[in-house]
């Protein structure tokens, strides 16, 4: 797999071609070194169309669309704070005190697109989009109008993760049945209890 064009170049080309689009490079520290581009919602379809049609890139083949769930995280970090303490002698003095601070990082859902070029035989270029949160605002623009191969995979991400792809021609549950209420691939899904009737019931 040759990554003929670096992510930086793609980012620059993208921002030049689609005015106003914001892209962020996410570094991948693993040996695979497949870095990805996080793009914003409003320009996503235009960016995708540009990537597909640009003569140098020609990313005509959207291979894999994956949903990923990043639940709310709590980060505990130790921070040094300056505090005024009263010494035993009764004087006010400034001291460094260690404090543990907890920060909630709100969760989000993510869609990852792996793009290749059949014509130029290069890739993968990894595109990412993130929802605002995991609740009611789990929306992303659909890239199915650009690459039809995303059709079933976006439906799958909708079914199993609950990402609503706006502009998808036929967004229904695909693997589970209509009327199923949960999103089973999310990290916090709990299967129904009656499943676990063990073979030792009286």
């Amino acid at each position: 797999m040759t990554q003929a064009i670096s992510v930086e170049e793609i980012k620059a080309a993208m921002e030049a071609a689609v005015p106003g689009c914001r892209a962020e490079i996410l570094r991948n520290e693993s040996p695979s070194a497949q870095h990805s581009l996080l793009i914003d919602h409003e320009h996503a379809v235009n960016v995708a169309a540009f990537l597909r049609d640009d003569m140098a890139l020609r990313l005509d083949f959207c291979s894999c669309v994956s949903g990923v769930d990043w639940p709310d995280r709590e980060i505990t970090e130790k921070v040094k704070v300056k505090k005024t303490v009263t010494t035993p002698e009764g004087e006010a003095q400034e001291q460094d005190v260690e404090e543990t601070r907890k920060t909630m990082i709100p969760g989000f859902l993510e869609a990852v697109y792996h793009l290749f070029s059949i014509e130029k035989k290069h890739g993968p270029v990894v595109l990412r989009m993130r929802t605002v949160n995991r609740g009611g605002d789990a929306r992303l623009p659909s890239l199915t109008p650009v690459w039809r191969s995303a059709e079933f995979q976006e439906r799958e991400a909708f079914d199993l993760y609950g990402i609503v792809f706006e502009g998808h021609p036929d967004l229904r549950r695909i693997l589970m049945w209509e009327g199923f209420a949960d999103y089973p691939m999310r990290k916090d899904y709990v299967p129904p209890a009656e499943d676990d009737v063990e073979a030792v019931a009286k």
Binding site: N28, S30, S63, C64, V126
Partner: peptide, 18 residues
Amino acid sequence: PKAGEAYGRIEGPKGELG
């Protein structure tokens, strides 16, 4: 493995298996 990600694919008999 170190934190990170990878996409690997091969030519399966049915097509690109990734």
